[in-house]
Amino acid sequence: MRAVVQRVNSASVKVDNELIGDIDKGILLFLGVEAEDKDSDFDYIFKKVTNLRIFDDEDGVMNKSLQDVDGSILVISQFTLYGDARKGNRPSYIRAAKFEDGKDYYERFIKECKNLGINTSHGSYGADMKVELINDGPVTILLDSSKII
Rank of each mutant, 00 (worst) to 15 (best):
M129D: 09
G117Q: 10
Y106T: 06
C113R: 02
E132F: 15
E107R: 01
H122R: 12
Y106A: 04
D136A: 11
Y106L: 06
D104M: 15
F109P: 03
V131C: 10
K114Y: 10
Y125V: 00
D128W: 04
L116A: 06
T120N: 08
G126T: 11
N135A: 11
A127D: 08
H122F: 10
G137F: 15
C113F: 09
Y125T: 00
V131L: 02
H122Q: 14
R108C: 03
D136E: 13
I110N: 04
L116I: 04
A127Q: 05
G117C: 09
F109S: 03
C113A: 06
S121N: 12
A127C: 06
L116V: 07
G117M: 06
E107N: 05
N135R: 02
K103A: 10
F109I: 05
M129Y: 07
Y125Q: 01
L133Q: 08
N135P: 12
L133C: 09
H122L: 06
E112D: 14
I134K: 01
G126P: 14
S121H: 12
D128K: 00
E132V: 04
S121V: 09
V131W: 07
S124R: 04
F109C: 05
Y105K: 02
E112N: 04
N115I: 02
G117H: 07
Y125G: 00
Y125L: 02
Y125H: 00
Y106H: 08
N115K: 10
S121P: 04
E112I: 02
I118N: 00
K103P: 08
